[in-house]
């Protein structure tokens, strides 16, 4: 797979700390056995009332349609491990998430889909959020080689990325199955060494 070295797009901001995966995608949409419809559901209950009427929400605003870089605050994606959350954002059109911090499982899930999550300081995020609110048309660029966020192609802030997530994104190795299977012999070796697989019986039926 090809790595991602640069992403350019317009920004969309969701403000608030501790935005959990139930808010990103309500559990009732987890009842579908494929991910294909998930793009319809991000932030559903915050975007629509019980009768289906649109509420005030950035994801509903015309001026943010087509935005692909999501800007968030602290501990975004906390809560459940549901991959439906990043799937919903990705299928809505989000290609990267920029925030102060992320819940671990969520960030890992994003990475495995090839969706980068990068972190910046609180004050920087606030500036970006304000800019995007004031002018949804500005172009943001994530340059992964320089680890820089660019505004209108001008360097703006440096961002941080978790080292292994960075490697996966830049080298295009986020689809880990092949990587793991490449070590098949070593997997079997470990299985032969683990006491619970060899010296005493486990899971005997």
């Amino acid at each position: 797979m090809k790595g991602i070295t640069q992403l350019t797009g317009r920004g969309i901001s969701i403000e608030g700390n501790d935005i959990d995966t139930d808010r990103i995608i309500p559990a009732r949409y987890l009842k579908e056995i494929t991910f294909s419809n998930m793009g319809k559901y991000p932030f559903f209950d915050e975007r629509f009332d019980a009768h289906g009427n649109s509420k005030n929400h950035p994801f509903n605003e015309a001026r943010f349609q087509g935005a692909s870089i999501l800007i968030v605050n602290k501990n975004f994606g906390c809560g459940s491990s549901r991959e439906h959350a990043p799937q919903a954002l990705m299928r809505f059109g989000i290609q990267a998430i920029v925030g102060e911090s992320f819940a671990e499982i969520f960030a890992g899930n994003c990475t495995m889909l090839g969706m980068p999550v990068v972190t910046l300081l609180e004050s920087e995020i606030q500036q970006i959020q304000k800019k995007v609110q004031d002018n949804p048309q500005i172009q943001l660029t994530l340059d992964f080689l320089q680890k820089k966020l660019l505004m209108e192609h001008q360097p703006w802030f440096e961002f941080q990325m978790h080292p292994s997530r960075y490697q996966a994104i830049v080298h295009g190795t986020w689809d880990s199955t092949g990587l793991l299977l490449g070590n098949l012999d070593k997997i079997k070796q470990v299985a032969q060494q683990l006491p619970y697989l060899n010296h005493f019986q486990m899971f005997k039926t």
């Binding site: 080292p163 292994s164 997530r165 490697q167 996966a168 080298h171 190795t173 880990s176 990587l179 793991l180 070590n183 070593k186 997997i187 070796q189 470990v190």
Partner: peptide, 10 residues
């Protein structure tokens, strides 16, 4: 099992 190129552990 191994150290992966991403720096993660398998």
């Amino acid at each position: 099992v191994d150290r992966l190129p991403t720096g993660q552990d398998q």
